[in-house]
Design a protein around this nucleic acid. Sequence first.
RNA 1: CGGGGAGUAGCGCAGUCUGGUAGCGCGUUUGGUUCGGGACCAAAAGGUCAGGGGUUCGAAUCCCCUCUCCCCGACCA
Length: 487
Amino acid sequence: MTRSKSSITPTTRTRTTTKTTTKTITESSSFTPISSPARGETRLAKGIPKRSEDYSKWYTEIVQRAELADYAPVKGCMVIRPYGYAIWERIRDALDAMFKETGHVNAYFPLFIPESFMKREAEHVEDFAPQCAVVTHGGGQPLEEALYVRPTSETVIWSMYGKWIQSWRDLPILINQWANVVRWEMRTRLFLRTTEFLWQEGHTAHATEPEAVEETLRMLEVYRRFAEDFMAVPVITGVKTESEKFAGAVRTYCIEAMMQDGRALQAGTSHYLGALIMAHSDDDGLVLPPKLAPLHVVIIPIFKGDAERAAVLEKAAALRNAFQGSGVTVRLDDRDNVSPGWKFNEWELKGVPLRVEIGPRDLAAGRAVLVRRDTREKRPVALDALKDDITRTLPEMQQALLARALQFRAENTRPVEDYASFKAQMERDIPGFVNAPWCGEAGCEAALQEETKATIRCIPLERSAEPGACVRCGKPSEGRVVMAKSY
RNA sequence: CGGGGAGUAGCGCAGUCUGGUAGCGCGUUUGGUUCGGGACCAAAAGGUCAGGGGUUCGAAUCCCCUCUCCCCGACCA
């Protein structure tokens, strides 16, 4: 029997376990020069550092101020707030639908894992035991056998499969689980690495190894499509080197994305949120791809006095109602206690793709002003054409974000033949990806990492055989690998 | 675990060196004027100064201990 596991880091385990886990991130220090305050010199997102000033701080602030997440009372843990969770739900639902198309079914396995299960697989203990939370007491008494809070459900799932699978006739089994897992990380970052995190793990059992590998690659492709089609983040699919692969795995597949600071992020389930944020957002806040935005359009009414107020709100409400059932989510921000300008800034911070401004002057002209979050383009649109325009613009924005990210990646990906150029490249503000020949030896890889702080992100699946000389040691190389600084 | 920073009103901070009535901005509440890129005036509410111990007539401030968070590194989805 052969296993396959897919979470966001596709990996093939010993005994033919295929584990799929992929993760992608991006940060930046100089960026796509797209956003600048509309007017004046005051930064709109007051108090948030620019990406170029302090990328980490920028990221942390954006996450909190956009109300995606907040720090929890427990070290290393976070609360995913409603707005952040709404995005997560969209990510989850999209992936879930894609998994089901491939024949997966969902199930749920317990949070606790008997200690004996952990120890059953030597590799598993070595890999995970140090970063596990262990429950030793229950019901007010010491437990006879300690229970591990799952760092993954692999062992439990396979013990159940053992019961369920009587013969090859029962195969294949394709089960996916959406769950939380706990890994006691030393250092945490909102969405990118927290002690407890939400993820998805697919565990499949196959009759033959080729079938298992095929399954893994199929899931890898699902992750790639999701990243590109929904997150608008282009990724490179590849295989991890021996030293970078998932612990205990025979092989680990991955998808790697470039963040705005030219660093690589392996994209994986809950990393998706971090990647999203870092790939598209700017100094004024989030920029969300329409397919994952909980709110697509916000309508900001502008008026003085009661008469104008009534007239404007009536039109605004009619516009909002026109979208009911259309799949486009629209909110009319009719709050009285904040000014229109304040609302502009707030919704920009939250990354809402489109804003409709509607005031007396617009009413008189039978139009409204439509503003794009990604490009900041402002244009008047006739009221009766607004719905169609918005319906058309959202997919355009989705495409534009992907195109922009692709262009950014292309601009920051370079072939390199010699070590001096490679090192120079990694010193740049935006180090980016480097395609370079590598000899395949672990020692050389370790030295390279030590000397440059860069890692071999992956051996791309789509690479052509290209005899050459290793960028570092000069020994023969079969082809190029992707090297980058990473998250 | 190492290095750095921080904990004072809901939020952001000053005050700490040099001990002496707990401050500022934002937000909140009330009233009024406003509203096309973070409006204005007036009034009001709001605090175990992270926690514990010590020194002192007196501690946010000085001493000792503890906890927590953030950032940078080593480890990781």
